[in-house]
Simulated scan of single mutants.
Amino acid sequence: MIRALILLLLPFAAQAEVVRIASYNTELSRKGPGLLLRDIRRDDPQVQAVVDVLVATQPDIVALQGIDWDMDSLAMIALSEKLRLAGLNYPHRFSAQPNSGMETGLDLDGDGRTQGPGDAQGWGQFTGQGGLAVLSRYKIHRSDIRDYSTLIWRDLPGAELPTANDDPYPSEQAQEIQRLSSTAHWVVPVATPIGRLNLMTFHASPPVFDGLEDRNGLRNRDEIRFWSLLLDGDLGPSPKGQFVIAADANQDPNQGEGHKDAIRGLLADPRLQDPQPKDSTGDTTTVQWKAVGDLRVDYVLPSADLRIQNAGVFWPDQDAALRDSAQRASRHRLVWVDVSVP
Rank of each mutant, 00 (worst) to 15 (best):
A22Y: 03
G112R: 04
A159Y: 05
R3G: 06
P253M: 07
E257C: 04
P162Y: 14
V62E: 05
A120L: 03
T114R: 13
Q175P: 07
D39P: 01
Y24E: 00
P33F: 05
S100P: 02
D324K: 15
Q327L: 15
H203N: 11
Q255R: 14
T26E: 08
A191E: 15
Y299V: 01
Y169K: 05
R93L: 15
I21Q: 03
V337H: 04
Q273T: 06
P157V: 11
A291D: 11
Q309H: 10
Q65D: 07
P59L: 04
T183V: 15
T286S: 12
G256C: 07
L88M: 08
D147I: 09
V339Q: 02
S205C: 09
N216C: 09
R215M: 11
Q48Y: 00
M71F: 06
G110M: 08
A56Y: 10
A304M: 10
A249T: 08
I2M: 12
Y148F: 12
A326S: 11
A4R: 14
D72N: 13
S23Y: 01
D269V: 10
I308K: 08
V47G: 00
E172V: 14
A268W: 08
L306R: 01
D319M: 13
P316F: 11
R154E: 07
V341Q: 14
P162C: 05
D248T: 03
L306T: 03
D166M: 10
R42C: 04
G122K: 02
D274H: 10
P237G: 06
W123E: 03
I194K: 05
W153L: 05
W186G: 02
A86D: 05
P117G: 12
P189I: 02
D279S: 12
A304L: 09
V187W: 06
D155R: 11
P162F: 13
K278D: 01
V187H: 02
G128D: 02
N89E: 14
G293N: 04
D261S: 09
R154P: 06
P193Q: 08
Y138I: 13
F12N: 02
D283P: 05
V51Y: 04
G217N: 10
L88Y: 04
G124W: 08
T163I: 14
R221C: 04
Y299K: 06
I140W: 00
G118A: 08
K240G: 07
T286K: 03
P157Q: 13
F12A: 14
P170G: 06
Q318Y: 14
L151F: 11
P170T: 07
T281W: 13
D214F: 06
A320F: 12
I6S: 13
I245W: 01
A75H: 05
D294L: 09
K82N: 11
S143C: 13
D44R: 02
R296K: 15
A247M: 10
E27Y: 05
M76R: 12
S205N: 06
M102T: 08
D68Q: 01
N198C: 09
D68S: 02
D317Y: 05
T57D: 04
M200Y: 00
G122S: 02
V50T: 12
L9N: 10
D44K: 09
I140C: 06
R323H: 15
A16F: 09
E257W: 08
L229A: 09
S280R: 14
